[in-house]
Simulated scan of single mutants.
Amino acid sequence: MRPLVAEINLEALRDNYRLAKSLAGSRALAVVKANAYGHGAVACAEALSGVADGFAVACIEEALELRAAGVSAPILLLEGVFDADEYTLCAAQNLWCVVQGEPQLAMLEAASIPKPLTVWLKMDSGMHRAGFAPDTYARAYQRLSASGKVADIVKMSHFARADEPAVPMTHAQAELFDSLCRELPGEESLANSAALIAHPATRRAWSRPGIMLYGANPLPAGPWPALRPVMTLKSRVFGVRDIAAGEPLGYGDNFVATRPTRVGLVACGYADGYPRLASTGSPVAVDGVRTRVIGRVSMDMLTVDLTDLPGAGLGSEVELWGNTVSVGEVAQHAGTIAYEVLCNVKRARRVYLG
């Protein structure tokens, strides 16, 4: 069997959730959309059963997968519905849904549903991606209240630059939200992972931690809470060879040895989710010792520098990211973010611990 394994530490996941909730000082929805950022949505939701106040997913398909697995806690659809019939399913499955625009609001007003829904009404406070414009938000709230289709309304918005603590936009978005929601009854939700860590004033009745649950810090530089990596992606060296100074390695000859170099061949490539752009210099750990990727990442394999690791060889364990090498380091080297790197993991055999 190919030795590529994604070890998922469920106790670390629970610890990270508890940390997020302690920062929030209130209830927190564990965001498990996109298959729990590549970690396995059902397994992660089951591990957080009895710990998390509820869950958030992107769409109804993801919610129904959790319900079919026996997850009974509240589940919020962050994108809302795409068809009027989905409101009937939301009522039948006790799902909460975001309403973020006129089409979703009109569909709900016209829907025939067996019982009122809990709706999270989204304001576009400055991100300009989804949500009701500030000057239409109160009217949308009033229409929901008068529709007879809604049991509770949670007021919400989303931040564009919460991961940049020095940028004033998050404060401005929160101020605008507060100025327009002050007279509207109901609970509120603003903070995602970055805001929970860097913007304490945005913590409300509900928070929505996502990436921090999986042990990746959403901020490019401190503060750094004591998050525990949940995924360790690891493989093994299955080939070793020596190349002389001046010899190229891999596709494109973009690595040329400057000294006699001992090369380890590792079973992991971009088809497994390791970023192709994280080529020469991207950190890895071989038998617990940090070294680097050399050469271009291929579809099914990559090559690492074993020159200074004389004890490493065939069968040596390679940590692509985890406790020794953070996924954030790999993402930074590839010019992307940890969210994308984790979501892209595939073909790896998941092993759940704790």
Score class of each variant (00 low, 15 high):
residue 4 L to Q: 08
residue 4 L to M: 14
residue 5 V to D: 02
residue 8 I to L: 05
residue 9 N to T: 03
residue 14 R to F: 12
residue 14 R to P: 04
residue 20 A to D: 06
residue 22 S to H: 06
residue 23 L to Q: 03
residue 27 R to E: 14
residue 28 A to S: 15
residue 34 A to N: 01
residue 35 N to W: 00
residue 36 A to P: 00
residue 39 H to W: 08
residue 41 A to P: 03
residue 47 A to N: 11
residue 55 F to K: 05
residue 55 F to Q: 11
residue 56 A to H: 01
residue 57 V to D: 12
residue 62 E to F: 06
residue 65 E to P: 00
residue 74 P to G: 02
residue 84 A to Q: 15
residue 87 Y to F: 14
residue 87 Y to T: 00
residue 88 T to W: 07
residue 89 L to T: 15
residue 90 C to S: 11
residue 94 N to Q: 14
residue 97 C to G: 04
residue 98 V to E: 02
residue 101 G to H: 03
residue 109 E to G: 04
residue 110 A to V: 01
residue 111 A to E: 06
residue 111 A to D: 05
residue 112 S to D: 15
residue 116 P to K: 00
residue 119 V to C: 04
residue 120 W to Y: 12
residue 120 W to D: 01
residue 123 M to Q: 07
residue 124 D to W: 06
residue 128 H to S: 09
residue 132 F to C: 10
residue 133 A to E: 13
residue 133 A to R: 15
residue 137 Y to D: 01
residue 140 A to W: 07
residue 142 Q to N: 09
residue 147 S to D: 01
residue 150 V to Y: 03
residue 153 I to P: 02
residue 153 I to W: 11
residue 154 V to R: 10
residue 157 S to Q: 06
residue 157 S to M: 12
residue 165 P to D: 15
residue 165 P to V: 11
residue 165 P to C: 09
residue 180 L to C: 08
residue 182 R to W: 12
residue 185 P to R: 09
residue 187 E to H: 12
residue 187 E to P: 01
residue 195 A to M: 05
residue 197 I to H: 02
residue 198 A to V: 07
residue 198 A to I: 08
residue 209 P to M: 05
residue 210 G to L: 05
residue 210 G to K: 02
residue 211 I to W: 05
residue 211 I to S: 04
residue 213 L to V: 10
residue 214 Y to F: 15
residue 215 G to S: 02
residue 218 P to Q: 09
residue 226 A to T: 08
residue 228 R to P: 00
residue 229 P to I: 07
residue 231 M to C: 14
residue 232 T to I: 09
residue 233 L to V: 14
residue 238 F to N: 14
residue 242 D to N: 13
residue 251 Y to K: 10
residue 253 D to L: 01
residue 254 N to L: 13
residue 261 T to D: 11
residue 262 R to Y: 10
residue 263 V to S: 08
residue 265 L to W: 11
residue 265 L to G: 06
residue 266 V to L: 00
residue 268 C to P: 00
residue 269 G to H: 04
residue 272 D to T: 02
residue 277 L to G: 01
residue 279 S to D: 15
residue 279 S to W: 10
residue 285 A to R: 04
residue 298 S to A: 14
residue 299 M to L: 10
residue 302 L to W: 06
residue 303 T to A: 05
residue 305 D to R: 04
residue 310 P to G: 09
residue 311 G to H: 12
residue 317 E to V: 11
residue 319 E to R: 02
residue 324 T to I: 13
residue 327 V to M: 05
residue 329 E to M: 02
residue 329 E to P: 00
residue 330 V to N: 05
residue 341 V to N: 07
residue 342 L to G: 00
residue 353 L to V: 15
residue 353 L to N: 14
